[in-house]
Each structure stands twice: as C-alpha cells, then as structure tokens.
C-alpha cells in the first residue's frame, strides 16, 4: 500500500511539474524609462533607487524578511523583492541615503548575502 501511494504521488508530482507552465511575473522589473513597481511603499520623486542582487532569496519568507527589515528604516520609501531575479529594489526618500555597507549589513543580518549593488538607476 505504501509503495503504491508513494509511486502514485511521485508520478503525479513529476508529471504536473513537467507539464505546468511557469508563471512569470514582472513585478520589480525596470525599464530605462520608467520607475520600478514596488511591492510595498512608493517611489519618492527625486529619491535614489538602489538595486541589489542577493544570494539566498528563494521564498516568500525570505522576501518578507527583507521587506520588513528595510521598511523599518526611515530612509526607505518603498521596496520590491523579485524572487525570479534574486533582486531587491530599494526606493529611498528624496534627500536620504543608505550607503553600501549599511545595505549589506541589513541584508546579512537578515540572513542573506549581497552579490552586487547598483546605484545607476534614477527615479523620474
């Protein structure tokens, strides 16, 4: 009985996986001419946008952790975490700044690691 249950489950599991279509979601993607869409908060006009590529972001608990930790900071106006792109978009308030070392510390203290930080994105 156990072998049958196990075999049936694994068969269903791998068939569903093989035929299911991946859902792609463009939340957090940035084109050159538009502000990023955020999962929480807003893009403050004139505020700095920081893009962070991170290691270890695999599930909603990870994304929730990053969101909660950064949204506690007064400098942050909004945020997006993309699991597909392993990317964190941080929107800062106009006139506020978070340096790379502080961003890296917040991410490391949350249990994740930074791959790179990009500050070349400007908000409109």
């Amino acid at each position: 009985m156990r072998i049958i249950v196990c075999s049936l489950f694994l068969t269903v599991l791998f068939n569903v996986s093989a035929y299911a279509q991946d859902l792609k979601n463009d939340i957090g993607s940035i084109s050159e001419n538009e502000n990023p869409s955020l999962s929480i908060g807003i893009v403050d006009p004139g505020g700095e946008i920081v893009s962070v590529d991170a290691f270890g972001l695999v599930c909603d608990f990870c994304a929730t952790a990053i969101e909660k930790v950064f949204m506690r900071k007064n400098e942050v106006s909004g945020l997006n975490v993309s699991l597909a792109d392993h990317q964190i978009i941080i929107a800062l308030k106009n006139g506020e700044h978070l340096d790379d070392a502080e961003i890296e510390k917040l991410i490391t203290d949350s249990g994740y690691n930074v791959k790179s930080i990009d500050r070349s994105i400007a908000s409109n």
Binding site: F9, N25, G28
Partner: peptide
C-alpha cells in the same frame, strides 16, 4: 517537495510534498 509552477513574492506558491 516540488513546486509545479514558479510564482513571485506575494502570489500563491503551491508545493507538492511527500
């Protein structure tokens, strides 16, 4: 476990597990 489809943060993630 295996996820039959990949969802973004905030969407419904479904896993089949044994």
């Amino acid at each position: 476990g295996i996820a039959p489809y990949l969802a973004e943060y905030g969407s419904l993630h479904t896993w089949l597990m044994l």
